[in-house]
Design a protein around this nucleic acid. Structure first.
Length: 550
RNA sequence: GGUUCCGUAGCUCAGCUGGAUAGAGCAACAGAUUUCUAAUCUGUGGGUCACAGGUUCGAAUCCUGUCGGGAUCACCA
């Protein structure tokens, strides 16, 4: 593009283009020819330069792993409630969080993955109360239910009975609002929360028991999802933190106290509202806890950056939290980032756990695995697989399709999940990329059998598809850097697809083992190997495994 | 109502730090397998980039406004 020079040089675009083009062809070996069209200078890169570029990638043993930054960055994600099982929305959160962690690690950061579990509060008491009343001592063993599903069942149970009570109260002439506040079940739940906070033995024991069940259930689900954490924080352990900042902030004038003793911060100058940080009874609210937890996390890990993977309904909360931290002048004032993602919608609208329109994470993963099995039995090349290997493949394919589906979309956009059409295994999918990898592995196996060693050679007459693939390969480190800066797995997803697609074209158009030129053959084996490795690396940044056969 | 995110092909999405004829996949249609895995490849049709102004040699991209949709604006978490 030569427009920027037109004004400065007072010459026509064509003249300038020709001048630059002639210079490049005469003075470099990289450019073989050029033409100028409508103010754009198009240059052709010599095949020797393409091969050189490939060779530098081929020899780089740590290709795609960026230099060590010697900085710790924390990624907090998942953040489940212990009163109900994980659903589709959590899948997006967990896959995003895990992928972002991988991407940051590839960018040279030391990454700490954390999970802040919401294991206390009135909502937890609701399922505890319902269990106490209607549970009849049921356990995961006796019911055959996963722990989290068992507890979730009683959360729904609570709501059912609660609604009946509300209706009953309304029929006595109470307004809906009052009925909701006065329903006996709710009052009991509130009482239970008080008991819990006062350390009542019976309540705490029930809480511990039910939590244990839930954590066992979550553990299985996390295992299936392929995500993990370096450190788990529980709100039951952090909810009292943060009050000392209120005192400090009051002294320094960051906060102010109203007549009823409640404490506030005034953010009107920043274009926000006044925000409560301590109730009039002196107890913490959500944001007080988060101030305390931020301090705790910093003391534990001294990270320079902190990423919170939380849904966009909390945009305002994090905006306020980060501003407060800054006003308090904490050492972790900078580098806080809310990775805000959109909801996953169903064709019927929003997911609502109480109305049964929620897509359960365990169910969905199981359905995907079943579908993967059917398709593999129909299409796959799995001769000689043991049952265990076959099951692992089904799981790999299922999770690949599911993760890719959720990660290929820009995180901040809300997205649509259609259970009827379900998730595809064809086209722009994780399966497509996995398939490209499996094919490459097949080629490498065959090359090995034939004793062909992949290496760079003086093969110098490249096919267009080969140039395209080499170009994409060379872009990989830049894509990793971009994805790290933007915290966007979608960039990696798109890249992996582009690479797999370009290779598929090469695969269909160019034969390797019937190629008479030995140089070309060896080059293409090496070339396929690097593409396979790069696909594997890119997919691992998404948390997706790639099979060697499928 | 205030704030904020979004609006691109029938559908799901890329492209957005300004550049050429706006790209993929799905769906539809037409082809490709005696040859390395056809979960693949090639081609055809499909667009007022929500709308209107502005900035610029040049706008899907930047600015302003309008319309439409979501989220949020709790002494819940």
């Amino acid at each position: 593009m030569v427009f920027p020079y037109v004004k400065a040089l007072r010459k026509s675009p064509v003249e300038i283009g020709n001048a630059i083009g002639n210079y490049l062809v005469a003075n470099t070996s990289t450019v073989s020819s050029f033409n100028v069209v409508q103010g754009f200078l198009n240059i052709s890169i010599a095949d020797s330069a393409w091969v050189d570029l490939f060779t530098s990638i081929f020899k780089d043993k740590t290709f795609g792993q960026l230099p060590d930054k010697n900085e710790v960055v924390m990624v907090e994600y998942s953040s489940p409630n212990t009163n109900k099982p994980l659903h589709l929305g959590h899948l997006r959160n967990n896959f995003l969080g895990f992928s972002v962690s991988q991407i940051l690690a590839a960018n040279g950061y030391k990454v700490v993955k954390t999970n802040l579990v919401n294991d206390r509060g009135i909502h937890i008491c609701k399922s505890m109360l319902a269990y106490q009343k209607f549970g009849n001592g049921e356990t995961p063993e006796s019911s055959g239910l996963k722990g989290d599903h068992l507890v979730g069942k009683y959360y729904v149970e609570f709501d059912k009975h609660y609604k009946v009570e509300i209706e009953a109260l309304k029929s006595t002439g109470l307004s809906e609002e009052d009925a909701k506040k006065q329903a006996p079940l709710l009052l009991e739940a509130q009482e239970m929360l008080l008991k819990w906070e006062n350390g009542d033995t019976e309540t705490v024991n029930l809480w511990k028991q039910m939590n244990e069940w839930v954590f066992a259930g979550f553990g299985q689900t996390y295992e299936k999802m392929g995500v993990s954490f370096d450190k788990i924080y529980r709100e039951s352990e952090t909810y009292l933190l943060g009050k000392k900042f209120v005192e400090e902030g009051l002294k320094s004038g960051v906060f102010f106290q109203k007549e009823d003793n409640s404490v506030w911060i005034d953010l009107t100058e920043e274009g926000l509202d006044q925000k409560l940080v301590l109730r009039k009874d002196g107890t913490s609210v959500y944001i007080t806890q988060d101030m305390g937890t931020a301090e705790l996390k910093y003391n534990d890990f001294k990270m320079s950056k902190s990423v919170y993977v939380v849904g966009n309904e909390q945009d305002y909360h994090f905006e306020v939290l980060f501003k407060i931290i800054k006003k308090l002048g904490r050492p972790y004032s900078e580098g806080n980032y809310h990775l805000s993602y959109g909801m996953v919608d169903l064709p019927s609208g929003k997911m609502k756990s109480r109305e049964g329109t929620v897509v359960d994470a365990d169910d969905l993963m199981q359905e995907m695995t079943d579908t993967a099995r059917e398709r593999t039995l129909e299409l796959g090349k799995t001769e000689g697989f043991s049952q265990a290997e076959a099951n692992e493949l089904y799981h790999t394919l299922a999770m690949g399709a599911l993760k890719y589906f959720l990660l290929k979309v820009d995180p901040k956009k809300r997205m649509l999940f259609n259970p009827e059409e379900s998730i595809d295994f064809q086209g722009h999918t994780g399966t497509f990329i996995q398939f490209a990898h499996a094919r490459i592995c097949s080629i490498l196996r065959k090359a090995h059998e034939k004793g062909i060693i992949g290496k760079t050679t003086d093969y110098h007459v490249l096919h267009e598809a080969e140039r395209e693939v080499i170009y994409l390969l060379s872009q990989y480190p830049q894509i990793v850097a971009d994805a790290g800066r933007e915290l966007s797995p979608a960039l990696i997803s798109q890249y992996a697809y582009d690479l797999a697609k370009a290779y598929s074209r090469f695969y269909n158009e160019i034969n390797i083992f019937n190629e008479p030129d030995k140089n070309a053959q060896q080059f293409r084996v090496a070339f396929s190997g690097i593409v396979g490795e790069t696909i594997q690396k890119a997919m691992s940044l998404l948390g997706i495994k790639v099979p060697s056969r499928m």
